[in-house]
Design a protein around this nucleic acid. Structure first.
Lengths: 208, 208
DNA sequence: TCAAAATCCCCCCAATAGGGTGATTGGTCG
DNA sequence: CGACCAATCACCCTATTGGGGGGATTTTGA
C-alpha cells in the first residue's frame, strides 16, 4: 500500500469524478487519496493529500484547469499533472503543456488507457491521446513549400532571434549588403515591410 | 489485399530490415511492398512502390534519414513517414518532426507497438515512444521560476516578435518610456545588453 | 506595511532599418 | 542556348531605433 501511486482527481461533474475515483481506486497499485469539484476547493487541503499524480479537468467553476496548473505546481512541485478533458482546441492543449502539464487525454479515452497513463506519467513519460499527439507533432512541422530560399529562411530565423543586419553578416560570413539584399527579397516574397511583419507572416505560415 | 496498408522500409542493417519486413508482412492488413538499405537507393523506384507509410532509419549511408524526409515528402507527398531509430537526441527528434515525420519510435519498441503505430500514423495519429513524448512535451514547458515579472515576460515576447519599442507601447496601451523601463529591467535581470542576447537568454532558460 | 511591479519623465548619440536602383556569378531546367 | 533564380556585393538616402545615463510616482500583492 505504501508504494501505491497517490492520485487526486479534480473534476466538477460528480458522476465522472466518482467514476474515475472508483475505477482507478480498484486497480492494484493505485490509490485515489482525494477528489475535488474545483481547484479552489482543492487548493486548501491538497498539500496534505500529497498526490503523485493529479487528474485535472479544464472546465472548472472558478479557477479553470489551465490557470490551475502553475498554481498546483507551486504548491506541489513534484506532482505530475495529467489533463483529462473533452476540449481538443490547440490553444488549450499548448497552454496546458506550456503551463506544466505532463500529459493530455481526452475524455473518450478508455479506462485502461487512463490507468496506464497515470503510471506512464509517473515514470517520466508524456501520455497523449492519439489526436492530441497528431496536433503536437504538427506544431513542429514547417511548410514544405515555402516561397523562401534556404538562405532567406536562414536569415529570417536570425531576424527572429533579434539579430541586427551586421550581426547576421558576421555570423554568416557574408557582406552587410548581401544581408540587406536577402532581407529585401524576403520582404518582397512575404509582402511585408518590417521585421515584425516578416516574423508574423513566417510564423503564420510556419516558414520558421 | 487491395486495402492493405502499403509499407516501405528504409534501413541499412540487413538483419533488422528483413526482420521488420517479415514481421510486418505477416500481419493481416499490412503489405511490405519494398525495402531499401539507403535513401539514395530508394529514391529511384520508391515512387513506383507508392507506399502509404515509410519506416525510416536515421543513420543511413549517403543521405541520412533527417535529410531524406523532405525529399521523400516531395516525391511522395501523401506518404506518412515514421522514424524508427536508436537515436534519442533532442536535435534529431525535433529536426525529424520539423522536416515532416509523423511519428518517432525508438528501436526498443515492441513489434506489436510498431505495427499499431503504422496503423495509427495512417489514421492521422502521431505515435511516439514514451521517452520521445516526454521530450516533446518538455519542449513546450516554460521555466516556472522565471526572474521576470508577467509584464516583463510579455514585453520580452513582443521583442522576440521583432516589434519596436513604439509598437509595443501602442499594442499594450502604455507609454514608450514605460516600455523602455521594462526593457532596462529585463536586461538587468538577464544580464544582457541587447535584444538578441535577451532573446537568446530567454530561449535558453525557456522564459518565453 | 513594505518591497516589488508598473508606470512615466528627461538627457545623449551611434547604429539601425528600410527604400531605391543597380551588377555579377553560378546553377538548373526545359 | 536562353531564361530564371539564388546568392553575392555596391552605393545613394534619412527617419527611426536602441541602448546608456539619470531619475520619479503610483499600484499591487504578500
Amino acid at each position: 500500500m505504501g508504494k501505491d501511486i497517490k492520485i487526486v482527481v479534480i473534476e466538477d461533474d460528480q458522476i465522472i469524478r466518482e467514476g474515475y475515483s472508483i475505477l482507478i481506486g480498484q486497480t492494484d497499485g493505485y490509490t485515489v487519496v482525494n477528489s475535488y469539484d474545483s481547484f479552489d476547493n482543492a487548493a486548501k487541503s491538497i498539500t496534505d493529500d500529497g498526490p503523485d499524480v493529479i487528474l485535472l479537468d479544464i472546465e472548472l467553476p472558478g479557477t479553470n484547469g489551465i490557470e490551475a496548473i502553475p498554481r498546483l505546481k507551486r504548491i506541489l512541485p513534484h506532482a505530475y499533472i495529467l489533463i483529462l478533458t473533452v476540449y481538443e482546441s490547440e490553444k488549450n492543449i499548448f497552454e496546458a503543456l506550456a503551463n506544466g502539464a505532463s500529459g493530455y487525454l481526452t475524455k473518450n479515452t478508455p479506462a485502461a488507457r487512463i490507468v496506464d497513463s497515470i503510471r506512464e506519467v509517473k515514470d517520466g513519460g508524456g501520455p497523449m491521446s492519439v489526436n492530441i499527439a497528431r496536433m503536437v507533432i504538427k506544431s513542429f512541422q514547417r511548410n514544405q513549400e515555402s516561397p523562401l530560399s534556404k538562405r532567406e529562411t536562414q536569415i529570417l530565423e536570425q531576424i527572429a532571434d533579434g539579430k541586427s543586419r551586421s550581426q547576421i553578416a558576421r555570423d554568416l560570413f557574408i557582406d552587410l549588403e548581401t544581408v540587406r539584399s536577402h532581407i529585401k527579397n524576403i520582404y518582397l516574397k512575404l509582402d511585408v515591410n518590417s521585421r515584425a511583419d516578416a516574423i508574423k507572416a513566417a510564423k503564420n505560415n510556419r516558414l520558421i
